[in-house]
Design a protein around this nucleic acid. Structure first.
Lengths: 212, 212
DNA sequence: ACGGTAGGAGACGCGGGCGTTTCTTAGTAA
DNA sequence: TTACTAAGAAACGCCCGCGTCTCCTACCGT
């Protein structure tokens, strides 16, 4: 015994402007954008699948078809946005770029990435990952590793150029720059200016690197 | 027209063990403990007023009577736990304590504080505070300021003892130690060993402080 | 030109936490 | 001792988001 059929004829499916119907990657991109905007505006806790669907002008079904849970959706959006951020570090250095300038560049890139909705995602997903080892591993592979390698790469290049003492090309030292920026942005919630990045590099990181 | 009165006579209000009925501070302390345990086990998102009440063996009304929202409850619990943490820094140093040992001590204290449920609280409340300036200010006054002052105090004391170069008694330098520890614990969700604290102090912070 | 597939939109039933209220009773102050 | 306040416990109605399902239709391959 099913319920009486509902009359759908009254619905207006096309608004006055003829709506372009997106598919595949174009749709996924729009959903990722909606996720990040939603994170920035209302935060992870208040974010719902329904709110994302509404903002992306799509149906809930199109989202559920791709990601089973809110968490997986946010992780996917986050990885998408964070993915290329560190790949570009290597390619943007020329032979004349000093280690110091490379570090400033990486610092700015971290800030740009983490500003807005993506920072929210880090907090929220990081919170989950402290209780979910699988998620923690996935995040580390996608974001942690690239970041570590990018920074270690800069330091090792510096050693080769004679700008960095060899013992300073170390995982712990490489963590200093991201740690200083991320605590500000994510834990304290303060904005970080370009000027601040420069100060961290010049007053904290570079003194640790310089050969005696 | 009200609903028909409900018969409450069937309720068993006293379990077999005679339950001690707490009041005032004793009750509040039990609720704070329940909040922190709940944060550590299921996280901020999954925490509900009902789950806290159940764990603390109290009624929801007793909680709503004190805190209007989940957020305020968690903030209160967090401040309670974090409150004294930094006050003790000054008193635990003797005349013979070196700057290096004082820093290790502060580092361990930060780790101990942030481990478990309190770390969860920082993440969650920090997330809110990026959208709520008033909350951000309250948190900074309760936790951020004491932390900064404690660390700057250690550095200034080091200057007086000749262990620290004067220009290093700086806000930015003082941030290095907490930044290195907090990113590990809160953002990456990794445990931090005593050994790691020592390495951060000896390999990162101390080299920044030493007089030429 | 023409199915088939997937997208936009939203109804639907369900579950769970919210905030309130009700009731009994333990502890406290007068 | 007695009156009063607040604690422990749970029922209640409400709202809201979940996950599914249905409907219409734009787009794509052939």
């Amino acid at each position: 015994m099913t319920a009486a059929p509902v009359d759908f004829a009254h619905r207006v499916t096309t608004s006055d402007a003829v709506r372009h119907r997106r598919r595949g990657e174009a749709l996924e991109g729009a959903i990722y954008d909606a996720v990040v905007d939603e994170l920035a505006e209302i935060g992870y806790a208040a974010l719902t699948i329904e709110s994302v669907a509404a903002r992306a002008h799509t149906g809930k079904a199109s989202i559920y078809r791709r990601w089973p849970t809110k968490q997986e959706l946010v992780v996917a959006a986050f990885c998408e946005k964070a993915g290329e951020a560190f790949d570009l570090v290597g390619t943007s250095m020329t032979a004349t770029t000093t280690t110091r300038d490379a570090l400033v560049h990486v610092g700015r890139r971290i800030c740009a990435l983490v500003r807005g909705g993506v920072g929210e995602a880090i907090r929220a997903v990081g919170a989950e990952s402290s209780r979910d080892a699988e998620l923690a591993a996935a995040l580390d592979a996608r974001v942690g590793c690239p970041k570590r390698e990018a920074l270690l790469g800069v330091l090792q290049r510096g050693v080769a150029r004679g700008e960095v003492r060899p013992e300073a090309a170390d995982e712990l030292i490489a963590e200093v720059l991201p740690a200083m920026l991320l605590t500000r942005i994510i834990i304290q919630g303060l904005p970080v200016s370009d000027d601040h990045v420069v100060r961290v590099v010049d007053d904290v990181v570079m003194p640790l690197l310089r050969p005696v």
